[in-house]
Amino acid sequence: MTDPPGRHAAGAPRPQREPHNESYPWPERPREGLRAQPWAESTWMDRDAGPVVRPYAMTGGRVHPSSSAFDVVAMVVVNRAALPGVSELGHGLQPEHRAILAYAREPLAVAELASHLDLALGVVRVLLGDLLGEGLIEIYHPPAAGVLPDESVLKAVINGLRAL
């Protein structure tokens, strides 16, 4: 008898944490010590502690970005033309916003940003929505769903993979 798919991965829900006052300055998110090997397939199940801060605390509880969804591979890049105005926006930007601007000096996928910032994808999307609203970043969406890339692109990928 084979096991039903996913049975081994039936992760119990994380222990419920005490609700805390989200207006209180949040402590540092846990970094190295609590972060398990990123490539071990099962590690997420062992992180019983969970994040110290509720993931959406830094978005003020907002769970939906202000503009359309950002694909995990949408490319984000700073709008350098708008950057000189950043200081004028002043306190409107949180440290996480500034961190995104710092990482996205070169084009970077949304998933990479989230990984570097150690923030949940949904959180990063809300923050990106803020930055897009301020005109501080540009987003390049991947080809629309259902639209296959040009044959020339596919051939380039095949040749590129062969050459690796």
């Binding site: 350098r80 540009e138 692109v153």
Partner: peptide
Amino acid sequence: EVGHRSVPTAIK
């Protein structure tokens, strides 16, 4: 400067 930057096509 923004206009001239090349942004790669991302394939998932």
